[in-house]
Design a binder for these strands. Sequence first.
DNA 1: CCTGGCACTCTGTCCGTGCGAGTGCCAGAC
DNA 2: GTCTGGCACTCGCACGGACAGAGTGCCAGG
Lengths: 340, 340
Amino acid sequence: MAHDERRLEVLRAIVQDFVSTNDPVGSKALAERHDLGVSPATIRNDMAVLEEQGYITQPHTSAGRVPTDKGYRLFVDRLSAVKPLSSAERRAIERFLDGAVDLHDVLGRTVRLLAQLTRQVAVVQYPTLSRSAVRHLEVVQVAVGRLLLVLITDTGRVEQRVVDCPPDVDAAAVPELRALLNSAFAGVKLGEAGDKVPGLLETAPPHLRGLVAAVSATLVETLVEPSEDRLVIGGTANLARGAGTDFSGTLRPLLEALEEQVVVLRLMSEVDAGTVLVRIGEENAHEALTGASLVTVGYGSGDRALGGLGVVGPTRMDYPGNMAAVRAVARYVGHLLAES
Amino acid sequence: MAHDERRLEVLRAIVQDFVSTNDPVGSKALAERHDLGVSPATIRNDMAVLEEQGYITQPHTSAGRVPTDKGYRLFVDRLSAVKPLSSAERRAIERFLDGAVDLHDVLGRTVRLLAQLTRQVAVVQYPTLSRSAVRHLEVVQVAVGRLLLVLITDTGRVEQRVVDCPPDVDAAAVPELRALLNSAFAGVKLGEAGDKVPGLLETAPPHLRGLVAAVSATLVETLVEPSEDRLVIGGTANLARGAGTDFSGTLRPLLEALEEQVVVLRLMSEVDAGTVLVRIGEENAHEALTGASLVTVGYGSGDRALGGLGVVGPTRMDYPGNMAAVRAVARYVGHLLAES
DNA sequence: CCTGGCACTCTGTCCGTGCGAGTGCCAGAC
DNA sequence: GTCTGGCACTCGCACGGACAGAGTGCCAGG
């Protein structure tokens, strides 16, 4: 049907214009700025249909039309070709991320990069512990009856926990314990580390059993707890852009939700590596995110995502551009972590 | 002079009323809400003098008076008795901070606590590396020609760096290297670690010299670089409070400055443990902070501060309350880090 | 099925007015 | 000499009506 074709084209034009100008867009302006080949009157008819179908709405009886969440959804699903990044942008990504000295640095640079590229709030999740493998376990006695357990994963993440232990631990036991733990856990995915504990306890020399049990318990606790996953957030200044038109009254709850982290982490847990996931406005269960859209994707070179990253912004955002940026950055971060 | 006494009292009353209501305060309201013992007319005369001296100003010809930065300064320096915390608040601090599992957790809780207590943006600096002592150094071979150096300080901070090294390193050399490094650096303040390097190089067995040199270089680099000090920020949602009256147009630069971290870190570097430092409005050199006030203090049990923490908010803030909260939290964090 | 024209509706803005808050000053009281 | 009550004055702001502009829906004609 040429009809439906053109109607979709009209919707696309409305979304594009509204995203760039933030003004409700009328039929006349639409006819001028786009080569739709028809007159404003015809466009008006199409717009009436689109409105009836729920894709657009008019804020006031006689203002232009504005896309609804449903309209953006259709736009994202069917209309937008993923915009390739400019070579300048590609170079910016490389320049920005190369030269990072450790994981913290990589993720810090990533979030700044993403915020700058998209001019939105950027969110990067630390590599999920349960999908990372143990590279090394370090045990240090920090006081009488107190050990510090340091976990280094293959993604470069470092976690530490204090473990209480009996005060009569022999200083010589620590290196033994370290060797034992490393031979048992090195290379093991943390998600599966729990299974190794019983075997380890059996083979451990009797005088170390108590220690091993205490340390293993802490280790498993640390990784089973998914809320321990961390989040880096940047570019919140972008929320206050444009004279605060976008999030006039809802800025505070949104900032609170971002600081809460839990909300965002839950959303991040659903990402797949390679597939960009877009959540628009009301599609977000959490109330504070009702007026916002999320563009997320998993990063990580292998099959399952190591973690997620993405951007948060107004529903009125440049979806194709942001999707492209998020995907490109995720890909690069994945490579970076794989080779380190 | 009873005169000057009362004028200061008037200033205090103006500051208090303005802080709590955010409305310019007039002579009549002042006479009603405070027991100044004089009539509005007299207060008007005092206000005229205060205005001439630059402590207050009127936004419009016929509105009430508003304190200037200079007025707040006088208020802070001479008028405000430090408000003791309520016992509920003291308990909140303990409940909030006890049970932290590691340094990251301690600082995360601290920043949330401070933000909640003061309803402002809270800022907490990681313990400065150069003033921390080495508790343990860990070396792990992560790939051919690549070592991971993990530094654990006595404040619980963990830093990691990748060190490139010749590809022909013997696996057996790593434990040797670890032992050597630890015996040389354990207990040494990082600020003085550089001095130890030459001696270490001399005593090191020849086949390890290259490695030791590379690792030591990285170590010294890491700690000499003061910009590597980290910052945790929380409660930015509080900036958007009160219908955005306080930072209407300046919100964005302020958020940017906070994310920049460098600006705040520089300010933090001046703190002393125990002495609460207040910077008001224009006193802040950085432009984005011109409309804001900072209340900062150093934490750390000993003589020199391990790091700083504080809050950022509008000049129109509850100085006595925030100063008390910041000081109490810093004291508690200091204890917490000392005993771990 | 598209197009041009037309009447209609609504919002945002501008302007003028009135009100209220607050001041500054002055003359008189303590 | 200092404080007080009174009074005239100055503005800012909120309210309300008029106006212009943008955009629509509908209809008749191509």
